[in-house]
Design a protein around this nucleic acid. Structure first.
Length: 589
RNA sequence: GUGCCCAUAGCUCAGUCGGAUAGAGCGACAGUCUCCGAAGCUGUAGGCCGGCGGUUCAAAUCCGCCUGGGCACACCA
């Protein structure tokens, strides 16, 4: 990366200056220096502000900048000093090397090794298998999968997991609800309680009707027997409950999984909460906390001393009816993750769960591990906007599921919009905009750049029509010729154009391509896939600008070869970046 | 009431460890297709970075207080 290269040059220049007595010894001064891209391109391609050194060097920033520059030997850039800034403008030769690098590394261009050896388990969505995924889940789904791609690209060893909350009361409610739907489908008198309080314990949405139909298709005889034996419709026997629970859970999970696959989200594992209970993991974990002296009894319940570890208060781990709380299973789950040998536990949680972070971290520490291994990304929620107004997800208005949304706006647009914003700002998802295939929709802007680059490459190899003579001309290039451009193209031809705009657009585009490496690195470090979206829009803009300033085809042959090399590089980076966020890179649109 | 997050152009948002004149997109206005895809490009207008203090050579950025919004404060999951 050029940024690193420049900082290295500065460091050796400083060393030289210190030896020459022009600058005093400065401890850890490197930390103060940052290589950045100037907002104003007139200053150059990169800049380093040396003002922070003024205090230690006891000199004015301009002087320091001048001393460093005088001691610098840097043939790859024009260097100049403005105030406390050292500005760098790279030579064309170095810019050529960027294009060469992309052509050589192809799919791997932009990847880095910063995450080497770190084993990460990334947990996200983790919905109850009690109904369809909603739009909020969609944000975690898109972000989580994009983050996984991104981290892998930075050489992290990423394992993606979905925690199924398939134990507890909600499942009983699901089973009861399915039973009512099954009876209804059999034509028997059955309905949810009319009382509003009581009906809260049922899933009254239509989606269980289909599940009931499927159940009857496969189990009609069994259902008849159940129906005969059932005395109280609202309180079926344990046998019926178990049957309904197992069936409903499996169906709901299957539906969720199918939808996620369609949404380009792939988990390495679906981890069942029930499994934790059934294998005694939860009890074992409670025992371990007890042995560590971190539990006590009060009011008939068992409490965990989470406040010993920074939580605002202690938490109940066993209710006075003897059953575990949700937290208990969660503690066991995270303990299990650690036992599986992961270095980092990254969770994506909705902001409404932020209160849980402290207690789960507390449990990790109480169980003798490092709480900093747990990294929770708290995501703000999604507001749906339609016709310029917020669609409340409440009971009265229509229920829009993730499936509905994807059907309405498509996978690409949904994913892009879900990832586009920083995770800690509330996302306004404007359905009308996301659906629109016009210039208001950023997804198409990025994809269009890819389609356009593809189109140029197609045209380069296609026979041409001579309108004046109504005859056919041969193509500019054979396919093989294009594939071997990195060997035959002389990239110096990028810079021969007397048109200043063409040259500066070329510079801008190449620098943007080079910037990709830095974006991947920073976005990985900050766990911020939204940066990829912003980058894509910037890269697309640079490409469109280049396209309008510099003709690629039907110019002098050597110029064509050089510019086609750049088009191929751009197309590659667009494709890689789109791939990381799970959005398709179309050849045509 | 307490804790977490947020407040930047008419709207939606960037601004990575404090640094040069605060940036995009949309919307508005004005240009631009006998030429590789006009889903594009070029230009103009638009800002007391919610308010007040503080730290600093330097604050949208850090600290304190205030205002306005979101979320959470269960022996629910």
């Amino acid at each position: 990366m050029f940024k690193d290269l420049i900082l290295n040059k500065i460091e050796s220049a400083v060393t030289k200056a210190v030896q020459a007595g022009q600058l005093p010894e400065m401890e850890d001064y490197q930390k103060l220096l940052r290589c950045e891209i100037p907002k104003n391109a007139e200053y150059g391609d990169f800049a380093v502000n040396v003002s922070p050194l003024a205090k230690f060097a006891r000199k004015a920033p301009v002087q320091i900048a001048q001393i460093i520059t005088d001691n610098m030997d840097f043939s790859d850039a024009d260097v100049n000093v403005v105030a406390g800034f050292i500005n760098f403008k790279l030579t064309n030769k170095v810019l050529n090397s960027v294009v060469e690098e992309v052509l050589m590394k192809k799919d791997m261009y932009g990847s880095n090794e910063s995450g080497k050896l770190q084993k990460i388990i990334l947990e996200y969505i983790s919905a109850n298998p009690t109904g369809p995924l909603h739009i909020g889940h969609g944000r975690w789904a898109a972000m989580g999968s994009a983050l996984a791609n991104l981290l892998k690209f930075s050489s992290y060893d990423v394992y993606q997991e979905f925690y199924i909350n398939d134990a507890g009361n909600q499942i009983n409610n699901l089973a009861k609800s399915l039973w009512i739907r099954v009876l209804q489908q059999m034509g028997k008198p059955a309905d949810f309680p009319a009382d509003e309080e009581l009906s809260k314990n049922y899933y009254t949405g239509d989606y269980l009707i289909e599940t009931a139909q499927n159940y009857l298709k496969e189990n009609s005889e069994k259902a008849e027997d159940f129906a005969k034996s059932c005395q109280d419709v609202l309180n079926p026997s344990d046998e019926i409950m178990k049957e309904m629970a197992v069936y409903a859970k499996a169906q709901m999970l299957k539906k969720q999984q199918d939808l996620l696959a369609n949404f380009r989200v792939h988990f390495d594992n679906y981890f069942s909460e029930l499994y934790l209970h059934q294998n005694g993991y939860v009890d074992a974990c409670v025992k371990k906390l007890e042995d560590a002296g971190k539990l006590y009894e009060k009011d008939g319940a068992v409490w965990f001393r989470s406040s010993d570890y920074g939580d605002t208060q202690d938490r109940v781990i066993k209710k006075n009816d003897g059953t575990n709380t949700y937290l208990t299973a969660d503690i066991a789950y995270h303990y299990d993750k650690l036992k599986r040998g992961f270095d980092k536990l990254i969770n994506i949680w909705g902001a409404d769960h932020h209160g849980y972070v402290a207690r789960v971290k507390a449990s990790i520490e109480a169980l003798g591990d490092d709480p900093d291994k747990l990294e929770v990304l708290l995501g703000q929620l999604v507001n749906l906007v339609e016709n310029g107004e917020q669609v409340r997800m409440g009971k009265r208005t229509r229920m829009l599921t993730l499936e509905d949304l994807i059907e309405e706006v498509g996978v690409d647009a949904t994913r892009f919009w879900m990832i586009m914003r920083n995770i800690d700002t509330t996302l306004d998802f404007d359905i009308d905009l996301a659906k629109s295939s016009n210039d208001e929709n950023p997804v198409y802007y990025a994809q269009y750049a890819h389609a356009r680059s593809s189109s140029i490459l197609r045209n380069a190899c296609a026979p041409r029509v001579d309108v004046e003579n109504n005859s056919t001309l041969s193509a500019f290039f054979e396919k093989e010729e294009l594939e071997n451009l990195e060997k035959t193209a002389d990239l110096n031809n990028l810079w021969n154009d007397s048109d200043k705009d063409a040259v500066s657009a070329t510079r801008e585009l190449i620098l943007k391509i080079e910037n990709f490496k830095d974006v991947v690195l920073v976005a990985s470090k900050l766990r911020a896939p939204y940066m990829l979206c912003r980058y894509l829009l910037e890269l697309a803009a640079s490409f469109h600008h280049f396209y309008n300033c510099a003709r690629v085809l039907n110019v002098e042959k050597e110029v064509m070869k050089a510019r086609l090399s750049l088009v191929i590089s751009t197309k590659q980076v667009l494709k890689t970046a789109l791939g990381l966020i799970g959005v398709s890179a179309p050849e045509t649109m």
